[in-house]
Design a protein around this nucleic acid. Structure first.
Lengths: 198, 198, 198, 198
DNA sequence: GATGAATGAGTCTTCATTCAT
DNA sequence: AATGAATGAAGACTCATTCAT
């Protein structure tokens, strides 16, 4: 039989990954069985296993790709020049995550929670996450340095602290939104702004 | 054996719950088998099942009790008078969580992540969390109202927004700490303070 | 502590046995747990085990006692003199079983089915049943001999065959009644009578 | 493995069902473990569970199929024309049951007892049995009407009563045979004949 | 390349029985 | 004598993965 084209292979891979996303988000990582994913993808067990060596790999790929998706969505906000004020930037990042989440069938916030949880005991996944969040925080730190230079931060403050605070706000927005469900990016942004006191 | 005293019963219950905590934190909620917990508790299967009707209940109890533990630790910070400035209060709350986590064998931050993840598809657990976080956020809102009254917030800001922002910072600290591991409460607090610009 | 009186012991035994009857009839032999019986009897596990060595013994005792109960109820019918005609006698026996079954909480027919089933793989129980049914059939055989002598049976017939046929009718009534539930002793009796053709 | 043919699927199903029959008959319904059946069938647990959703279904299928087997064996006796006399018909029906029972490894009489017992607390099974016995009794009633018409029953008798009496005899034969083991269809038939008195 | 039937180790849970108090 | 907490050996069922066709 003729080899399948690379293009077809990539499409198949994505088909499986999206099926996995839908299942993971619906039922969680562990409650999702390979059979669920196989059926959702409309393929055979053998087919799925020829694209991914196992469930672990599927989880890792699903999370990695999600993370990649966010990176692409968040990057523009970070690259905006002139750099928006801290509260505005944070708001835009959170909004990007929220927008990504409204995509048909994937609520990124839910997947993020599942991934964080899983990363506690899944070393490759943990590493993947570090590889995503650390550069992201570094980018925030660079932004903080600019704010500092332009006098938008309290004098004597440290860029790493600011980066950590803003990252916390973003991650915390995701948790709050997934668990309580009644928070908007704009509210958090306004709250941050409010803290910038008299 | 004759009827066991209420005190002994409670001690046994705690013995099992602590074993479950240790296991959950080590291996995650689903990767932990009842057998793991049973062995860790040093009891028999039947004994464990006579205190908890099943794994689900054990998960719920573990998370609920953890949450209760935090509440007790965090309450003093919220009750401090005069009320500390926003960044100081947030720092104290995060510090309380961090302190709780150093207790022998339970890292509360890890359990929190597991719980948030599980709450996505476990309705009783989700409700338990709402019952914990909502009043906590209300308390933050009350604090925000005081800050407003004393002119510590930017004029025209809304207390609910501030409460959401601070809750996000605290939750985000937990995520960042669990996933990246290189964040201290103090750093986030300083970062928040830094945002309170000129 | 003073020894319990024999009378009290017997009362306790009966209390347990009746609890077992009710449970067995409600849930079947195997679906009934010792705990069900213990709770139904309102005693402690230890108490029940001090009267019966185990579940097996409880089953055997429950069935044996049921059988004894029938024997006592059926005996008068067999002893009636002058001996009633075959269909009348069969009707009276079935009626006795039906009457016994209306006693509060024990439907003997149900217990009979459970016992027959269990006897397939429980040798002591099987033996107990043989010890009950064989003498009963012998008594029927004696009756048949009398019917023969008084010309109430077709000439040339054998008393053992008649005894087997009547026993079959009685047992079959129990089955039919338990499984289909719409049969009365009187109907079977009339049916037997109808067979005594021209 | 590619898709299995319907034929092979049916063969596998039967293989499992026959294994279950053998186990049930040997050890009873509840004392038979799924593991027993799995080993007897020479398959894996997963294979068995892919053909039957659980033990309950296996019990129901085993009994249902047994019942179907009898129906097929008994039907010819009921269809014989000219219709045999009541005692002869009853004898043939019982003989059909006895013949069925000598088949390698399945004693239908034992399975019948197990099924009756189980039907007490298993509603689907109970319904299956009603669906089998009721039409069978109806067929007997039709036969009784013919006997009546041809003057083979005592004048004034009712066909439903006769049907009930013959069904009782057949069921009772099964019980007597399973519990006491020393009864032949012919004996019961002769006994019934003997009751047709002078 | 693809299929999906089969595998079997592993999971949660139950329950008859015991025995320290 | 009585209690009822504790035991632990099963039991039913699941599911990631493989491989014959």
């Amino acid at each position: 039989m003729p080899k399948i084209s690379d293009e077809r292979r990539a499409a198949r891979r994505l088909q499986i990954l999206e099926a996995a996303w839908r299942c993971f988000q619906r039922q969680g990582l562990h409650a999702t069985t390979m059979d669920d994913i196989i059926r959702e993808a409309g393929l055979s067990a053998g087919a799925v296993y020829s694209y991914f060596p196992g469930k672990e790999a599927l989880i890792l790929a699903a999370v990695t790709d999600s993370l990649g998706g966010i990176r692409d969505l968040v990057a523009p906000a970070l690259a905006t020049r002139p750099l928006p004020a801290p509260d505005v930037l944070a708001g835009r990042i959170m909004q990007a995550v929220a927008d990504f989440s409204t995509r048909e069938g994937y609520d990124l916030r839910r997947i993020a929670l599942l991934g964080w949880s899983e990363a506690q005991r899944n070393e490759p996944l943990r590493q993947t996450m570090r590889d995503f969040y650390l550069p992201f925080r570094d980018a925030l730190e660079a932004a903080a340095a600019q704010w500092q230079a332009s006098g938008q931060l309290r004098p004597g403050s440290a860029a790493p602290d600011v980066a950590r605070a803003i990252l916390a706000a973003v991650l915390g927005y995701v948790v709050q939104s997934a668990v309580l469900g009644d928070v908007e990016p704009e509210e958090i942004a306004r709250g941050i702004r409010a803290l910038g006191a008299a």
